[in-house]
Amino acid sequence: MELLVAASIGILTAVGVWLLLRLHSFPVIVGTIFLSYAVNLFLFAMGRLAIDQPPIVDPAVTAYTDPLPQALVLTAIVISFGMTALIVVLALRAFLETGTDRVDGGRDEPPTVADRAGERL
């Protein structure tokens, strides 16, 4: 299970970083979402992986899982959800006002004459 959790966090992070380095705003947003998923899983795992153990005191059990990461991850989820909503709206507004979805505000090359000729063929 450790390998599975570690591998999924690693893959999510790698995907997030790769998308974050794209030029257009939509992949960047998806990249931040992937990164926030990765970090949420990571925070869960920081209290160590434990199966079938309660986080709340119960006289019948002796072993507990760490309850604090669950509280932390809840905070992190709320914040990253709000931030994702904000950046989506922001990217839409920026696209509508500037007419481009490039994060540097630049424009993609307009189709060249050769491209247009290719379309016609």
Binding site: G16, V28, I29, T32, S36, I87, A94, T98, V103
Partner: peptide
Amino acid sequence: LTAGLSYVAINLTGST
């Protein structure tokens, strides 16, 4: 808006 988008994206990454 363009500058704000970059600002938000980089700070989101920082928060992560």
